[in-house]
Design a protein around this nucleic acid. Sequence first.
DNA 1: TACACGTGGGG
DNA 2: TCCCCAAGTGT
Length: 331
Amino acid sequence: MPHPDLPRIHREINDWYLSHARDLPWRRESAGAWAVMVSEFMLQQTPVVRVLPVWEAWIERWPTPAALAAEQVAEAVKAWGRLGYPRRALRLHAAATVIANEHGGQVPGTEAELLALPGIGTYTAAAIACFAFKVPTVVVDTNIRRVHARLVSGRALPEQNQNAAELALAARLLPESGPGNPEGTALANGWNIAVMELGALVCTARSPRCEDCPVIESCAWIAAGRPEPHYKPKGQPWHGTDRQVRGAMMAVLRHSAGPVDRSELLGVPDLALEGQDARPLNPAREAEPIHQAWVGLHALEAGAEQRERALDSLLADGLAQHSAAGISLPH
DNA sequence: TACACGTGGGG
DNA sequence: TCCCCAAGTGT
């Protein structure tokens, strides 16, 4: 393991952050812990540009955990829109309910308490503690892992699975802090978001902008001649998968005014031509989202068996519920 | 541990 | 066009 000039790297990356960081609303001083928490849920596996408008609307509508907890889950799923992974909306609502009922409506500030909430894992607990509560903890996300892999380990990409060595490295790179060291504590707290931002804007997965990097002189990957990745990332299949079918069904449910007949979701075309919601193949309503959603579902090549499997998994996950009137979003 | 889980923009 | 991948979590 090389011995990088840590204080210099700390200073260079933090200085870079001060002049290059994006002005994101959840980073402002006015943003409270709830605003940070909502952003962290939305940002899981989702780019900032897609999160921004949804986050704005969400915080405006539900400024506190209690406000969200008082709503029906269906409203959260609808407001989640097309962010993807709609189970996150379920878990955010569930977490807000726990906070309202067991934390006096205040987002807890320790990693252990945060970790106990639905939808919050190791990364999100550390991120909320660090960003919202100024706890100088070790935060490890995909951006930070990639920066560390290149800067220190000299590899193009981090390992496919996060491991103990990466966590130890992240801990070693964190500026020293402590009760008697307020400056170090502030430095350590800002370090996490600075490295994360560097990974997001400069040290990107594809086509990294090394010419804009503040620590290119210290980079082990550059020194090694920018070697190729030592493995090939596994693709994420989509076409023809259950996920595709679930997504299409969720789009229908999000845009439906009420329950949808189970047989319609399972793809019986004739039944989809009647009812209160927009119908596929109805030219007068082509522009409506519900129409688009139906068309999307019916366009799939998924057979009856796959549709049943997808719908069953939606019901099992709690993203949909069954009643005598049909399938609807959860209440 | 490996896999399932949405969506859409950029290279 | 096609493929990659983006502030992960839960099982």
